[in-house]
C-alpha cells in the first residue's frame, strides 16, 4: 500500500495545550491515513494522554485544529465525535462492571442504532442488539461461553479484549487505541497483536502503545512524542535508526 498518497482520515494541526507553565502538547501535527496503522510512542510523561484527550474531545486545545474526514471537529463533544466514527478504547478499561460482557457490547450497538428513547421493549432479549454484539465478540476472539458473565468478574486480559469489542461495536471510521496491550501477559499480548493485525487495513488505527514488539510488528508509520513534541515520524525502520529517538528512550531507561 502506498501510504504517502492515501487520504488523511484524521489530522491534528498545530495542537497546543498548556497546563499552567507546562506545555503538555507543543505544536503537534500528525495524521492518520486511510488503511493505515499509525503508532504513537513516547516515554512516560511525553503527553500522549493529553494528546488523546484533545483528539477525542475530553480536552479542548488552546490552539490548533482536529480535522476528521474533512470536517473541523475541534469544538465537538466526545459523543458527537463518536457519532462521526472517531472511536477510542481506554488504557484503563471503562466498562459496565455490573453487566455482562454481552450487555456491554450490546449497549454500544444500541448507541450506534440511533436514539435510545425506547421505554418498553426489553433490551436484553432484542436480537437486533445481541446478534451484532455476539458477532463482534466472536470476531475479537472472546470466549462465547463466557459472554454472559458479569464483566467485573472477568480477567484483566478478557476485559482488555472486551474494551476493544465495545469500541468496534460503535462502528469506527477510525480507531484510537490507548495502550491495548497494557498489563497483558506475553501470550495475551501476542493474541491482541493478531487481533489488531486482522483489523488493520479495514479500519485506520492510531495506536498508542508501550509494547515495542507490538508496535514494530504492526505499524505502517510511527511518530515519537517527547515532551509534548513530535520529534520523529516515519516508517518503522527509519524510526529505529533515528538517533534522537534512541536518545529519548535511552535517557528514559537510564533514569
Amino acid at each position: 500500500m502506498d501510504a504517502a498518497v492515501a487520504e488523511p482520515v484524521l489530522e491534528a494541526r498545530g495542537l497546543i495545550k498548556r497546563f499552567g507553565g507546562l506545555t503538555a502538547t507543543d505544536d503537534v501535527t500528525l495524521d492518520v491515513r486511510a488503511g493505515e496503522l499509525h503508532a504513537l510512542i513516547g516515554p512516560n510523561g511525553a503527553g500522549k494522554t493529553t494528546l488523546i484527550g484533545q483528539l477525542t474531545g475530553e480536552l479542548r486545545p488552546d490552539a490548533g485544529q482536529v480535522i476528521f474526514r474533512g470536517e473541523d471537529i475541534t469544538r465537538l463533544s466526545t459523543a458527537a465525535r463518536v457519532k462521526r466514527g472517531l472511536v477510542r478504547s481506554f488504557q484503563i478499561v471503562q466498562l459496565l462492571d455490573d453487566d455482562s460482557a454481552l450487555a456491554n457490547v450490546a449497549l454500544a450497538v444500541q448507541a450506534r442504532l440511533g436514539h435510545s428513547f425506547r421505554f418498553f421493549r426489553r433490551a436484553s432479549t432484542d436480537d437486533a442488539l445481541t446478534g451484532p454484539a455476539r458477532r463482534i465478540l466472536a470476531e475479537v476472539g472472546f470466549d462465547a461461553a463466557r459472554v454472559e458473565l458479569r464483566t467485573g468478574d472477568l480477567s484483566h486480559g478478557e476485559r482488555k479484549v472486551l474494551e476493544l469489542a465495545v469500541a468496534l461495536a460503535a462502528e469506527p471510521q477510525l480507531l484510537l487505541l490507548d495502550e491495548p496491550m497494557a498489563g497483558l501477559g506475553p501470550s495475551e499480548s501476542l493474541r491482541m497483536t493478531e487481533t489488531l493485525r486482522a483489523l488493520k487495513g479495514r479500519i485506520p488505527i492510531l495506536l498508542i502503545e508501550h509494547d515495542m514488539d507490538a508496535v514494530f510488528a504492526l505499524a505502517d508509520r510511527i511518530s515519537v512524542l517527547v515532551y509534548g513534541r513530535v520529534i520523529a515520524s516515519g516508517e518503522p525502520a527509519a524510526i529505529r535508526a533515528d538517533p534522537a529517538v534512541q536518545e529519548a528512550y535511552l535517557a528514559e531507561e537510564a533514569g
Binding site: 457519532k83 450490546a106 448507541a111 421493549r121
Partner: peptide, 28 residues
C-alpha cells in the same frame, strides 16, 4: 419495563460509567 428497555440500559450505563457512555456516542 423502563428499567429493562433501551432507555433503562442507557440509564444503567450512566450510573456505572458516564465516560464510557460518551465514548460509545451517547450524549447523556
Amino acid at each position: 419495563r423502563i428499567v429493562r428497555s433501551r432507555f433503562g440500559r442507557v440509564l444503567e450505563g450512566i450510573r456505572q460509567s458516564e465516560r464510557r457512555m460518551a465514548a460509545i456516542g451517547i450524549a447523556t
